[in-house]
């Protein structure tokens, strides 16, 4: 293990803000995209008419 302590790890040699700012936004972007796309899928599935209701548009 190359890091001597957790604080050293999070400091990233003084570049912590830049490194973690990159990874945090990437993580948020992925989580948001997955949430949006799953919502879209569920809505599309719910909006599709079931056989017994017949055509609704």
């Amino acid at each position: 293990m190359k890091w001597e302590s957790a604080s050293q790890f999070f400091a990233m040699g003084g570049h912590g803000l830049y490194v973690w700012g990159s990874y945090a936004v990437a993580l948020i972007a992925v989580v948001v995209e997955v949430a949006l796309v799953r919502t879209r899928f569920r809505r599309a599935l719910a909006a599709a008419p079931a056989p017994e209701t017949g055509r609704d548009d």
């Binding site: 599309a44 909006a47 079931a50 055509r55």
Partner: peptide
């Protein structure tokens, strides 16, 4: 999701549901 949105009124989507 796009397939379902565009093909919602087809028989196969009905069968699927």
């Amino acid at each position: 999701a796009i397939i379902l949105e565009r093909e919602r009124n087809t028989d196969w989507v009905r069968d699927l549901k």
